[in-house]
């Protein structure tokens, strides 16, 4: 199993050069059935990452650019009256894909955002009283520009919680950038890619992730982390965050070829899982969620 995952990671690594950590985290997020939020400046390869992931897993891929005039119906679809059949027919929106890339999620109005996030949480869409299930697997990668800009709507805290992880790609290192400059066009490379993991296998792996053993000692550590965050911040990590942390760590452990979760796994995914959940406390502590998460991991002793 490990080799399969390794193949996946290395293939993505061919395109996303020098970003192995981010790629691993994104993969772990996918394996843990979570949604991913990428926060970074334009042009560092957010879209390419999403695209590569979809390609390598053979997933149906759609990209939606969020704008301020985007309406909920534009993404989930709408029912249109068909004169011939004399009834409403549901036209599925772009959300009905196995992998959806949402660009600049904070540009859309809160109304549209909440429609999206609701769909992510429920894995189905209800329109005019009819429930339409979303495809399975269903994986959302949203990107967000970190800088405050006029005309953006930052995601409310309750909705940030829906994303399992938030990662940053960052500017590639000098060597990696050189490789990119010299190398083939990414888009052409992408077209040549073959899926390395069929959907059935992906589902199987996702099942397996949930079965990775978490011992009482590890759960103690996890709870210590949650409690510590609740002690020191006005709104600490929610129980959902705890679950997210556990699932992400399970996925990470499985990627390491282990059948049990170690504190190291929690620490590996910790910042990605916790930072955006702690970040909204920013006004109070004047420190970024990333620093808060790092401090938390530094301060809670491993039992």
């Amino acid at each position: 199993m490990k080799s399969r995952i390794e193949t996946l990671v290395s293939q993505i690594g061919q395109i996303i050069v020098g970003k192995e950590d981010a790629v691993r985290l994104a993969t772990a997020c996918l394996l843990a059935r979570g949604h991913l939020l990428i926060e970074d400046i334009p042009g560092v390869g957010k879209t390419t990452l999403a695209h590569t992931l979809a390609r390598s897993l053979g997933l149906q891929f759609r990209r939606i650019q969020f704008t301020s005039d985007l309406l909920p119906a534009d993404i989930v679809g709408n029912s249109i009256f068909d004169r011939e059949q004399q009834r409403f027919i549901f036209h599925a929106g772009p959300l009905f894909s196995q992998m959806v890339l949402i660009d600049e999620i904070n540009r859309a109005t809160p109304k549209t955002q909440s429609a999206l996030l609701e769909a992510m949480e429920e894995t189905h869409v209800t329109i005019d009283g009819v429930t339409h299930p979303l495809p399975s697997p269903f994986f959302v990668i949203a990107t967000q520009n970190p800088q405050h800009q006029i005309g953006t709507f930052p995601l409310p805290e309750s909705q940030l919680d829906r994303f399992l992880m938030r990662i940053e790609l960052g500017v590639p290192g000098r060597a990696a950038e050189r490789t990119m400059l010299l190398g083939q066009d990414r888009k052409i490379m992408l077209k040549e890619f073959r899926p390395v993991m069929p959907i059935e296998t992906l589902t199987e792996v996702q099942e397996q992730v949930r079965r990775v053993h978490a011992s009482p000692a590890l759960l103690d550590y996890l709870q210590d982390l949650l409690e510590a965050s609740r002690r020191r911040h006005r709104a600490g990590l929610s129980p959902r965050a705890g679950l997210a942390l556990l699932h992400a760590a399970q996925a990470w452990a499985l990627m390491q070829g282990r059948e049990m979760v170690l504190p190291e796994d929690i620490q590996a995914v910790g910042v990605a899982v916790m930072a955006h959940r702690l970040g909204h406390d920013m006004e109070a502590t004047e420190t970024s969620g990333r620093t808060l998460a790092q401090n938390l991991l530094r301060e809670v002793p491993v039992p």
């Binding site: 510590a228 002690r231 020191r232 004047e286 420190t287 401090n295 301060e299 809670v300 002793p301």
Partner: peptide, 22 residues
């Protein structure tokens, strides 16, 4: 006895640093 420090808000030099200790 275990002691740890929670996030310390930054201060301007000359002000008091307040350290939340657990």
């Amino acid at each position: 006895l275990g002691a740890s420090v929670e996030s310390i808000p930054p201060v301007f030099a000359g002000d008091d640093v307040s350290v939340p200790v657990v």
